[in-house]
Design a protein around this nucleic acid. Structure first.
Lengths: 213, 213
DNA sequence: TCACAAAATGGACAATCGTCCATTTAAATC
DNA sequence: GATTTAAATGGACGATTGTCCATTTTGTGA
């Protein structure tokens, strides 16, 4: 049997990353120590140095991993929906605010890393990557919608709609962070579509995307 | 000369709080140690224990102080403007995104504390207070606007507009956090008013508030 | 000016931090 | 089954953490 060695190695590596994320979610970054991590991963002290060369690198890898998980989740959803611009937007809004992507653990982790982003270039970079990818998806959808709507300055409107929608989603995440138990996903989604249906009445209503005429 | 003793005492107390905020802004929460704080405040090691009973209490006080500063800033602006709903909204939007309130230091501090909010009840409480006060101001303004606009369900619309606008402001702060140098305040403001002018075309345009007819 | 007391000092302290490496374990190869 | 070697272990290490208090400083009132 070959490869077993490497298989265990990679499993341990992943255990460390997941231990960091669990700890960050439960206790915050400042209480995520080496002792805390290896205890959760049920591995020995030296493993962090062996696999990552130090605690900081491990934390950075955990941030990257978490960021990739988010984007993969959104992207997977996009492949299950229709191809109109408004369908894409609806899927992104519903996905970004759905239980799978927005939950207590993910939001704790995300904001914990954000809080460190200003002082850790590596973490800021992953935060950015996630943003840029999503922004592109959303802009392409709004660009199509704005063109179809036959309004003036469709490109600028698409840019503004992208910026505004993403900002609103971001703000909804903050609401959830601060009040996870009273947060109302349905209401959050309706609010976003209320704004979008005012801007593009032929493409959205309060319930989400409209079929093309 | 009496009171001089207490005056020095309070100045030192404040120095400690400001030292915490400076350190959090520059190095993040996890690197804000007792040594770092007393070095910045140019005071002795024992002062933290003497004035606050421990480091955690001091950090909590710093979070409260910072939160109060924000609200005071917004509130001061409100007193310099007209009294229509749309003027209030415009002032809050412009104020919240203006240099005085939104700058590199304030945003670093705010997001650093947010990242800890999930794991420190005291900090979450201040975060909430700031939110609740602002939410109230904004809702009252939109309630007047929605009533004037003579639309259906004015109360629900006002609630949604409040929620959406605050979420967008929140999202703009995040943009600034991640890209303080390329962030465009004018653009951010225009985007918000683009959304608002779609919802309330008689009250807003891309430039902000409209005079009542 | 002197005695009193409040405030500030700065070092001692145990606990914990992250790093590193000599040693042990166990998979892979012969 | 014996040998090789990569991976994992866990304790030693110096540095740093936050707390606390015996001592010193300094403003206040007699």
């Amino acid at each position: 049997m070959t490869g077993r060695r490497q298989e265990i190695r990679e499993r341990n590596r992943l255990s460390l990353i997941e231990a960091v994320l669990d700890s960050v979610a439960e206790k915050g970054i400042s209480e995520t120590s080496v002792s805390e991590i290896i205890q959760r991963a049920e591995l020995s002290r030296g493993m962090i140095h062996l696999h990552f060369g130090g605690k900081d690198n491990l934390v950075n890898e955990a941030a990257r991993y978490s960021s990739e998980q988010y984007y993969n989740g959104i992207y997977a959803l996009l492949e299950t929906t229709g191809q109109t611009g408004q369908e894409h937007i609806e899927m992104i809004v519903r996905g970004d605010l759905g239980e799978t992507i927005l939950n207590k653990k993910s939001v704790s982790i995300w904001y914990a890393f954000r809080g460190e982003a200003r002082n850790r270039a590596a973490i800021a970079a992953f935060s950015d990557t996630r943003d840029a990818k999503l922004r592109n998806l959303v802009f392409n959808a709004f660009a199509r919608i704005a063109k179809e709507a036959e309004i003036e300055h469709p490109n600028q409107v698409a840019r503004d709609a992208t910026h505004g929608t993403l900002a609103m989603l971001e703000g909804m995440w903050t609401d959830y962070l601060l009040h996870p138990d009273s947060f109302d996903r349905t209401e959050a989604i309706r609010i976003i579509f209320r704004f979008l249906s005012s801007m593009f009445p032929n493409h959205f209503d309060l319930g989400g995307a409209l079929s093309p005429k």
